[in-house]
Amino acid sequence: MVQVAMTVNGKAVSANVDSRTLLVQFLRENLRLTGTHVGCDTSQCGACVVHVDGKAIKSCTTLAVACEGASVTTIEGLAHGTKLHPMQQAFQDNHGLQCGFCTPGMIMTAVDLVNRKGNALDEATIRHELEGNICRCTGYHNIVKSIAQGAREMATQPQAAE
C-alpha cells in the first residue's frame, strides 16, 4: 500500500492505496466521485477524462500514486454551487447528451479544448479535438453545437482557476 495525497476539486484528500489503483478508481471508489466513468480498457473512449493540474487526461490510464501532490478537477468540481459552468449549460441548451454516460468526459475535454484553443472554435476543430471521446447516442451533432456555444460563453463568464 502506498500513501497518496492530492487536491481534488479544491479539497485536500489522502488515502492509503494499492499501487495499482488508477486515478479513476481512486476518484470513484475512495472519494465516491462517481461522475467520472470508465467506458473502455484501451484509453480510447474518454469517459474518464478529468483535469490534472489544469490539463485534460484520461484517469483510467493514470496511476493514483502518480498524481501525488497534483490538483485534480472532476465533473463534480466544475459548477460553482448551483451555477453551472457555461460548458455544462451549453450541453443542456443544445441537447448535447442523451444517456449521459460519456458526458462528463466530453465536458471536461471541451473545457480543456477551450483553454488551449480559445473561444472561437470552428466545427472542424471541435470535431478533430474530440477524437479521444466516443459517444454512442448523439452522433456528435449536438455535442459539436454545445461545445461551440460553451466556448463562446466561457469568454464572457470568467472561470475560477483550477
Binding site: 484509453s43 474518454g46 477524462v49 490534472v52 490539463k55 485534460a56 487526461i57 484520461k58 490510464t61 493514470t62 475535454t109 480543456d112 479544448l113 488551449r116 479535438e129 477524437e131 479521444g132 471521446n133
Partner: peptide
Amino acid sequence: IGDPAVRHR
C-alpha cells in the same frame, strides 16, 4: 499522436 488527453501524458 493519440488524442489531446493522451498527448497531455
